[in-house]
Amino acid sequence: MAQPIRVLVAKVGLDGHDRGARVVARTLRDAGMDVIYSGLHRTPEEVVNAAVQEDVDVLGVSLLSGVQMTVFPKIFKLLDEKGVKDMIVVAGGVMPDEDAAALKQMGVHEVMLQDTPPAAIVATLTRLVNERGER
């Protein structure tokens, strides 16, 4: 039996807009994945700790408060400090195109914004995990 993909769906920062994050959590569960939801108002440190302890395949961070350029550099720094090299990091929410491009430069594997169809999110995560291979 293939191992379900493990995903941490995380809300970082102070914004409470969790509609998207919870729709994504439910979509991924219904696609057979194991989803850990961080709950609201988490810090980058808390999220990275959880992602490492849970050894998730994918860390998905949802943001609608515009703090992406503060949060993601921290996440990558923390992952680096913990010696984690193979975690797939994706972003979701609302942000300007320039920021989305900058995040991809920084190492975010995929940026999936508002109105990304649920099936597309499942397909993207599945593809990214397959590309990564066994770990």
């Binding site: 920062g13 102070l14 108002h41 810090t43 408060s65 515009g66 703090v67 350029m69 503060t70």
Partner: peptide
């Protein structure tokens, strides 16, 4: 967001969110 959540601007939770 910090004002909405009751944090002062120099609280660690406010980083990056002040006046944004």
């Amino acid at each position: 967001m910090p004002t909405l959540m009751g944090y002062d601007s120099d609280h660690p939770m406010s980083e990056g969110e002040v006046g944004r």
